[in-house]
């Protein structure tokens, strides 16, 4: 089995577990819906039509809901000492990272698609017309979010205050992703097309590549026992 095959096996294990219990993705997207709802009360109705407000709401919901999934990513492995079993697998640590990353990517992407749908109805955004652009941005942002998020989820796994700590570690590092995603999706939602915000897209790509590479390199040290 190749490198990616091994990683996919680990990811598939997570996905299968999720399909059976259906506890994480569902609570994530419910939370995402709630964030969108709450924001709605904080923003004056007149302001809601401002071009830049909508992407802000969408990405706030994305980040707050997404971090719920990341929290569970490694702490679920703690139960029944699954983490030990995972570490005993005769695979490279980078494979474990990639596997967990892929699993998180699938969960967060599924959640964000549902949140996007909910958002488009409530905020009157014609998503169908701009769907390809939004999907590209969503995909790139999810890669960056999960690249750093999976690493930090592993960092915070054994810690008593891990839920809060993960947010404190992750949010400052995520600033470029959120900024770039909000800016480029504002271009897309205004109908200016995906490449109107080309430099923001480039930033997302750079962020993804840099932090995937760095995470693969340093992940070895995080789970060292």
């Amino acid at each position: 089995m190749g490198f990616l095959g091994q990683a996919w096996t680990i990811a598939w294990k997570d996905i299968l577990g999720e399909l059976r219990t259906r506890e994480m993705v569902f609570s994530m997207l419910l939370f995402g819906f709630l964030v969108i709802l709450i924001f709605n009360f904080g923003i004056e109705p007149g302001l809601r039509d401002e071009a830049l407000v909508k992407p802000g709401v969408l990405w706030a919901a994305f980040v707050f809901a997404g971090i719920l999934g990341l929290n569970r990513s490694f702490s679920s492995e703690k139960e029944n000492d699954c983490l030990q079993g995972l570490l005993l697998c005769p695979v490279d640590r980078a494979v474990i990272y990639l596997g967990k990353f892929l699993g998180n990517f699938v969960f967060v992407l599924a959640m964000s698609l549902a949140v996007l749908l909910f958002f488009s109805v409530l905020y009157n955004v014609d998503v169908i017309a701009v769907l390809p652009g939004l999907l590209a941005i969503l995909g790139l942002a999810t890669i960056g979010f999960c690249a750093v998020g999976t690493l930090f989820s592993a960092v915070s796994v054994g810690i008593k205050t891990r839920d809060v700590l993960l947010a404190i570690l992750l949010f400052p590092v995520l600033v470029p992703v959120i900024l770039a995603a909000a800016k480029s999706s504002a271009f897309v939602m205004n109908g200016e097309g995906l490449f109107a915000g080309g430099s923001w897209l480039a930033m997302l790509v750079v962020y993804d590549v840099v932090f995937l590479a760095v995470s693969v390199m340093v992940f070895d040290y995080v789970l060292e026992e």
Binding site: V155, P176, S199, M203, V210, F211, V214, V218, Y221, V222
Partner: peptide, 28 residues
Amino acid sequence: HKRARLSAVFGIVGWIDVPIVFMSIRWW
């Protein structure tokens, strides 16, 4: 050593992040 490893990982990631943060906000 566990604390040292975890904080070293975070320190490195954070340090790499700062120039990217600066670039992104500068475009903003």
